[in-house]
Design a protein around this nucleic acid. Structure first.
Lengths: 342, 342
DNA sequence: TTGTACGCGTTATCAC
DNA sequence: GTGATAACGCGTACAA
């Protein structure tokens, strides 16, 4: 077919290495992988030399199929560019490197269908574990389908770990959304705030809902009026938009805003300022997650600190251990200048 | 060996599906993978039914070894949690999903040795392409080793694409660091600034060096004094620290600071403020990258916008195309309140 | 249209 | 210690 001028250039195989070293393929395998130390050292070094000379690198797929197991873990997140998920991803990859595992990452983009499809393809990789970081959305048949897919994966010997809320029957690294938000509410009450608005995402997003209801729970019994709820996107743009709408509506009846995550809160702060409203002075603002930029914004953002990187670390550790339980990541309230005492 | 109470639970294979459907393994393969449409539709549906019933998912490693190619691309970054890299990663994964490719990600953590080691293991995956996002560091033998490793991968049929500067002999998506910084310098001169400090990273970091020298080049001929150069880390903490040092030293002779990336600039702004120095008013601050938080910081940060996500998209597209050339991502100066005209 | 059989690169089980 | 050789799960000539 080809004119054959250039070879198809396929990578060297173990067979090539063995031939180069003048030994059998079996010996070459042993020398390189060394499941047993029973190779004459002279031969071993010849093989190693041949390997580097040829630029040989073992074919992981071939190893996987021969050994019946991979050194791969799969991670699915909603959006890598979001600091929330990239922090988790950083934790997972860090722990993976330590365990000499390769991590493959997929982005669900907030779509349950996409998420399901991703888990399906990922299963084909036969990864040691699949870690799904909180893009979970309630309702729809996709939820059951996802459960089934993950369950099949598990019965086939895979480990699955979820990060966020325990709303699916799998080991999960839980973020203390409800209680964290409740304690934030109490802290804000303590700072003298009594009239609130909550910027939240649509109800199918579990994380948003838990933080929202948690906040309300924290307020309960204090006698403060029911917070104004403004629904918007779970993103910076969503926060910006909600704040803009709040200003247009008039915000005389709200002293502080709780946005269910920091990027929303930060977007809201900018929107406020763009509208001539000074965050911290004219209106308090609080978020959730305590992403790193929370301290670089002005005024510094009150938030609920969640050890995201550690959550990633624990998730993989949990996946690799053979016990199956849950882990709760603590949430710490951190009051900053965006909610000065009043 | 085992008491056999619970089966080892290995995933169903194509063979199981074939048996369940009452056809040969070849027919099953054809029905599911469908390289040709020559399967009686009745059989085809039986096979598909059997597949879903058994929860079958093709073993990607087995397919890879049988077909001789994977549907995988590898991405190596310095730090996922850094918005610079996570934006690139977002672009790469987005394009990958579109091409139905799985992306495996590794973190080099700023260590050339680690980077080399990563590329080596990644080669074992036999990915379609390896994309290395600018953690390149000059000097040391690791550079040549990396070149050789990537070259071997390429001659073995792999595609390699670099993101950042064209300092290695491979297709690269170039960020216009030098020229962007030069134009920023000109813009700042135009805004009336004449005495500068530059916060830069150690010289081995190419990106930092290029932006630094580019800035100096932009100043050249204008007759302004040589900028004060402060070396620090390439991170937010580095920026914070540099600013602190500058304040301690006294900054009467500097009107504006150019930090070679935005996270450094943002860290610097916070440090200035912590020291009672108002960014924008007492000292101008400019960064590079135009990460999303640049507009959420106060005052909004002057920066050089680089389409990072697009860089990721192009990188993968370039890797998949069979031409081998370079792509230059434009850099746009965006003047904001952190460098008001004076 | 379908099934048999071989090959992909590797590990593991044997004999030697 | 070493070398054949049979797996591993799948694709695909080739023959039927």
């Amino acid at each position: 077919m080809d004119d054959g001028s250039t070879a198809p250039a396929s990578p060297p195989t173990l067979y090539d290495v063995a031939r180069e070293a003048g030994v059998s393929i079996a010996t070459a395998s042993r020398a390189l992988n060394g499941s047993a130390r029973n190779v004459r050292s002279e031969n071993a070094s010849r093989v190693r030399a041949a390997a580097v000379k040829l630029g040989y690198e073992p074919h992981l797929s071939a190893q996987a199929i021969a050994k019946g197991s991979t050194r791969t873990v799969a991670l699915v997140v909603r959006d890598v560019a979001d600091p929330y998920f990239s922090s988790i991803a950083a934790g997972v990859t860090e722990e993976a490197q330590a365990a000499e595992l390769i991590v493959t990452m997929a982005v669900a983009d907030g779509s349950p269908e996409r998420e399901l499809e991703i888990v399906r393809t990922l299963r084909g990789q036969r990864p040691r574990a699949i870690i799904v970081a909180g893009s979970r959305v309630d309702g729809a048949g996709t939820r059951d389908a996802l459960i089934e897919e993950l369950a099949e994966y598990r019965t086939a010997g895979g480990r699955v770990v979820l990060i966020s809320q325990r709303d699916l029957p799998f080991s999960t690294v839980m973020i203390d959304n409800h209680d964290g938000a409740a304690r934030l509410a109490v802290a804000l009450l303590g700072a003298g705030y009594r009239r609130f608005a909550v910027f939240h995402a649509p109800g199918e997003i579990r994380t948003s809902r838990d933080r929202h209801t948690g906040f309300l729970a924290g307020l309960r019994g204090s006698g403060v009026p029911e917070p104004l709820a403004i629904e918007t996107g779970f993103t910076r743009a969503g926060g910006y938009d909600a704040a803009r709408r709040l200003v247009e509506r008039g915000f005389e009846d709200v002293e502080a805003v709780f946005a269910v995550n920091d990027v929303m809160a930060i977007g809201a702060m900018t929107a406020f300022r763009d509208a001539g409203v000074i965050p911290g002075a004219d209106v308090g603002v609080a978020g959730f997650d305590d992403i790193s930029s929370a301290v670089d914004v002005v005024p510094a953002l009150t938030s609920v600190a969640v050890p995201l990187r550690e959550a990633g670390l624990s998730a993989l550790r949990l996946a690799l251990s053979d016990v199956s339980h849950d882990v709760l990541m603590p949430a710490d309230i951190v009051l900053r200048a965006s909610t000065p005492p009043r």
